[in-house]
Design a protein around this nucleic acid. Structure first.
Length: 355
DNA sequence: TCTGGGGTCCTAGGACCC
DNA sequence: TCTGGGGTCCTAGGACCC
């Protein structure tokens, strides 16, 4: 039996979870983001289809969303609720016999399986997730992770779509490179500078041109993306975080070394709690500063592997010395990188989290 | 209109060493 | 006239994704 990769993606995940516990919101314009106050600094995490019709989309400042959809219901981001729903969904997927599950995020996962009828498996996954959680999903079927992920976009909402070596170029060849997973606005522009604007042009691009533009690693990888190639199997091994971070955008810019130190100390304490839960030592401390209006700088320092909270806090506070005391600060962030566990594998292809 | 938060990985350039 | 040079570590920034 042939091996398949299925990409399961929940439809409107965050908005759907909110509507499930507030049925009166069904059919209304719902915008989830920040603390749910559209007069505050913050952006849209998810908008319901009804809100999207008014031009509201992910990443948009809440203030703009409120202007476009003045009648929308604004809700705060409730991370624990989404995590709980996500765990339920993943448990359902894992309960299916003979499949391997690779979680990509709250609302999506790769499912690997050998079957003669991948569409039947896709429908079964959708039905079981719906029955257990009342959440609808779309499934992309592919012979690689890249094709499965892209296929999902053609199945939305609540559908199933198959993309393989046979139909990849017929379906994707004429489309813009931007539609590929991992190609954003910057790379799109750089490709266009070489006359490469479609997927088929990328698939057949001169490898030397791509290496010259993007380097020996990313150049060949982008060409592979254009061909829909990638991993043929899912990786079910447990996720091992490289680091943890906390950052905070202030509703009003702050200033003064004392205030900055106070905020940094609070952020470090929170991240240290996350790190402690994993039991691995800290090996690098990075302080992120966003000055008004929007200039971002980072200052990092490698440290000898340590579990000592005071040492880590001290390093973070030392880094505050690099903050310009004369500029108002809009955001502060602390990132702690941890030592990898013994035997952790290093990636062999460019992997943005999930590839 | 004014730009979140939590992640991952890659690259460039300087320091340092032999 | 001469400006070595390759490898590795560290840091800052960039790009992308959900």
């Amino acid at each position: 039996m042939p091996a398949w990769v299925l990409h399961v993606d929940l439809d409107q995940f965050i908005a759907a979870v909110e509507v499930l516990r507030r049925p009166e919101l069904a059919g209304r314009q719902v915008v989830v983001g920040g603390r749910g106050d559209p007069t505050e600094r913050g952006v849209v995490a998810t908008a319901s289809y009804e809100a999207r019709e008014r031009g509201v989309g992910s990443g948009m400042p809440l203030r703009v969303a409120a202007r476009r959809a003045p009648d929308a219901v604004f809700l705060p981001v409730d991370k624990p609720a989404y995590e709980a729903a996500s765990e339920q969904v993943m448990a359902v997927l894992r309960s299916v016999p003979g499949v391997q599950v690779q979680v990509l995020g709250w609302d999506e996962a790769f499912v690997g399986a050998s079957t003669d009828d991948p569409e039947a498996l896709a429908r079964r996954l959708q039905e079981e997730v719906l029955a257990a959680t009342r959440l609808h999903s779309t499934v992309g079927i592919g012979d690689t992770t890249v094709r499965a992920k892209v296929a999902t976009g053609f199945g939305k909402p609540r559908g199933v779509f198959r993309l393989t070596r046979e139909n990849w170029l017929a379906v994707m060849g004429g489309r813009p490179t931007r539609e590929l997973w991992g190609i954003g606005p910057k790379v799109t522009a750089r490709l266009a500078g070489h006359g490469i604007t479609t997927v088929s042009e990328l698939a057949t691009a001169d490898p030397e041109v791509l290496v010259g533009e993007f380097g020996p690693r990313m150049g060949p990888w982008y060409r592979q993306l254009g061909r829909g190639e990638g991993a043929r199997e899912v990786d079910p091994s447990p996720w091992v975080a490289r680091g943890h971070s906390r950052e905070r955008t202030f509703q009003e810019d702050i200033s003064g070394t004392a205030r900055v130190r106070e905020e940094v100390a609070g952020l470090v304490a929170a991240v240290l709690d996350d790190v402690a839960a994993e039991g691995r030592p800290v090996v690098r401390v990075t302080l992120k500063v966003r000055y008004a209006p929007f200039l971002t700088r980072s200052h990092g320092r490698k440290v000898a592997p340590t579990h000592d909270r005071e040492a880590v806090t001290g390093t973070a506070l030392d880094l505050v010395d690099r903050v310009d005391p004369g500029r108002p600060v809009r955001l502060l962030g602390v990132h702690l990188e941890m030592a990898l566990p013994e035997g952790a594998r290093e990636g062999t292809t460019p992997t943005r989290g999930a590839w």
